[in-house]
Design a protein around this nucleic acid. Structure first.
Lengths: 227, 227
DNA sequence: GTCTATAACGTGATAGAC
DNA sequence: GTCTATCACGTTATAGAC
């Protein structure tokens, strides 16, 4: 059903002309609006009318440029998914940095991304849940973690008894859970235990330093005596 | 718009009679089907026709018993939300148990719950995001954490220098992130880094022991020398 | 390229027979 | 209580004028 597209251009000539116009093109306006609405409400709850209104254009134009709601969604989904795993691949595969440095870099850049775009994780995870097939089409995710330099270093450290033997997926879950989950749970936390948006973001800024520290403590935990 | 109801009974007499019939009542069948469909797909993507089919009954009956899709949803939402915070209140407020024991109990019971009903967190968080107002109507959540015995014990431990001073919300985020996030991210992890459902559940079973250990390590981390 | 008007369709809800 | 048939409406998509 859902089918990723690379770059759908209904009227190539017109599109190129539009791109040359002085300010932002209509196509870009629609794409940006779609990104906002889809990411906030999800595919099923999003209305093409809302997207058109958000873009400040007519509803018919949406179909003129992107043929269908689904096609437009696939574009946004792909972008958001790319954002979601953006940087991970690069950071996990830095040859020269240590395990600890990689974690620091990953956490910091992720928290900065999610501070700007806090709705991405919930969107991506919800839509993947709704339609797992969209993932099958994406390549590279399967081996992203398993064949990374990070993983190689981790296994090596375990072999050299510098780390306790533990399934590496636990490390990944911990890292993601500590970093991403607060943003996913923010709508709940904001009404339950945190005062306002500002306080939340301040806490997340703190976590840039805290999470790497905690990750270290966790990775070495089984060999440490706890007071 | 969304408005929680306590117990909507269109035809009280008929309902009571149905409850006396030998096997499961139609009302219960619909409610169960609604729970399955809504929790899996979310409010917007769920179709009343799918719910009726899942229940093995006619579409008209759904409206006969529950008047509208929204009313039915509120029921499921309330149930799921209760599940989501179920046990937390009790466990956080046990007077006699230590901080460590509370964490152990909480993690274990939560992982068991989510093993049976893995879709609850993503459902609850997505629907709260879609309509934060539904939370405002719920009472007790605001002070659930802040005024708990857990919190009192935590603050006391900090005062006695047994724990480093840190915002207690970090502890809550860590606990939830480590425990709940794997279930939220499961649809992604299952295609990316984990083989199958069985392996996933085995990992989650391990985490019942691991998370309390990690939580200890994290809580004491700032005072521990990291090798 | 952009608009208005409208078609085509899916979905929630109901009327009415049994 | 349960069903079939149908309505009413919102939403996506398109035709056609400009």
């Amino acid at each position: 059903m859902i089918n990723f597209i690379q770059g759908f251009n209904p009227v190539q000539g017109n599109k190129m002309k539009a791109k040359l116009s002085k300010d932002i093109s209509t196509e870009e306006k629609i794409k940006h609006a779609a990104r906002v609405i889809f990411t906030r409400k999800g595919y099923a709850a999003a209305r093409t009318r809302d997207i058109a209104a958000e873009a400040g254009i007519n509803l018919a134009l949406l179909n003129y440029y992107f043929r269908s709601k689904e096609k437009l969604f696939e574009l946004v989904m792909m972008e958001n998914f790319e954002q979601f795993i953006k940087g991970i691949r690069t950071l996990l595969n830095e040859e020269e940095t240590s395990l600890e440095t990689k974690i620091e870099n990953l956490v910091a850049s992720y928290i900065e991304l999610l501070t700007r775009q806090p709705d991405i994780p919930l969107f991506v995870l919800h839509e993947i849940r709704a339609n797992p097939k969209i993932l099958v089409r994406r390549i590279g995710v399967k081996d992203l973690f398993e064949k990374s330099v990070f993983m190689k270093q981790f296994r090596s450290a375990v072999r050299q008894k510098k780390l306790p033997a533990i399934h590496p997926v636990h490390v990944l879950m911990n890292l993601m859970g500590l970093t991403i989950f607060p943003f996913v749970a923010a709508p709940l936390l904001l009404h339950a235990v945190i005062g306002d948006q500002k306080e939340f973001l301040a806490l997340m800024a703190q976590r840039k330093k805290l999470i790497p520290m905690w990750m270290k403590a966790m990775m070495y935990a089984p060999r440490l005596p706890i007071p």
